[in-house]
């Protein structure tokens, strides 16, 4: 999204979140602009998913504010497209790919999907490269395909922000690069936030990196160095330096 006047699409101001008496997020402030491709990294239990859920309006901060397009996330949920991890779905659920994507158009009122809903679902399937498997059973697909179905479901609602939770968990490298391409393409028209463990997955397309470990720090996206890695995984980490080859340097 090449926007001259940067719009703040998500604003978090001094947000605090606690589960009973454990503070997961403490005084978190950040701003995301239209067209950003944001990676949210951090150790397990550091609050990445909690931050995502605050932005989605699935959780409410104890204090502070979370705003989406200037309003509450629940009021402006139409702007948000949520892509959860595919692995949490029931393996036996009788549903086709097309039906899953249609639920991205679901409305409060009773009744059936309109022609426009069907069209939006078909377009989303096309964008995600799934048109030829639309009539297949969701459970029969590979992990990477299922992940793309969930992206298509989010796209069907025509959101302007996509929020993805660990899109590369449990997918192999080939699938990962396919998702990478898809996200790069989608970033031309959508603001993208992704929670990830896999720092390497998005390092070349991400323009901002937030590290969440009870607090949130922004890291420069062009320097994925040791400090970032240790911030992402906690301190007891050793880094594999792919840029230095010992054999070569000894010769």
């Amino acid at each position: 999204m090449e926007n001259e006047t940067a719009t703040n699409v998500v604003e978090v101001e001094h947000a605090v979140f606690r589960y009973s008496n454990y503070t997961v997020l403490d005084d978190v402030s950040l701003t995301i602009q239209a067209g950003d491709m944001v990676s949210i990294i951090g150790p397990n239990g550091g609050g990445k998913t909690t931050l995502l859920k605050l932005m989605l309006g699935l959780l409410e901060p104890v204090s502070g504010k979370v705003k989406v397009y200037g309003g509450s996330p629940r009021k402006n949920m139409g702007y948000l497209g949520y892509v959860p991890q595919y692995s949490r779905f029931d393996e036996q659920f009788p549903i086709t790919v097309y039906e899953v994507v249609l639920t991205g158009r679901l409305e409060k009122r009773a009744g059936f999907y309109s022609k426009e809903d069907r069209q939006a679902a078909a377009e989303a399937l096309e964008t995600a490269g799934l048109s030829d498997v639309s009539d297949r059973s969701f459970q029969a697909l590979s992990g990477g395909q299922r992940q793309r179905v969930l992206i298509a479901r989010a796209l069907a609602g025509r959101p302007s922000i996509l929020l993805l939770d660990e899109p590369t968990s449990n997918v192999d490298a080939a699938v990962g690069s396919m998702l990478h391409e898809l996200l790069e393409e989608l970033n031309k028209t959508h603001t993208i936030l992704l929670v990830t463990h896999d720092v390497g997955f998005v390092d070349d397309i991400t323009n901002r990196v937030f590290c969440v470990n009870n607090h949130v720090h922004e890291h420069p996206a062009d320097k994925l160095d040791a400090s970032l890695i240790s911030a992402a995984y906690g301190n007891q980490m050793r880094m594999v330096r792919h840029d230095i080859n010992l054999e070569k340097s000894q010769q």
Partner: peptide
């Protein structure tokens, strides 16, 4: 029959269904 789609979505993915504004 009237709420088939809502019940289907609720059974498949409650969290996502809530994000579509469905109570």
């Amino acid at each position: 029959i009237l709420f088939y789609h809502q019940f289907l979505a609720l059974s498949f993915d409650e969290e996502f269904t809530r994000l579509r504004g469905i109570p």
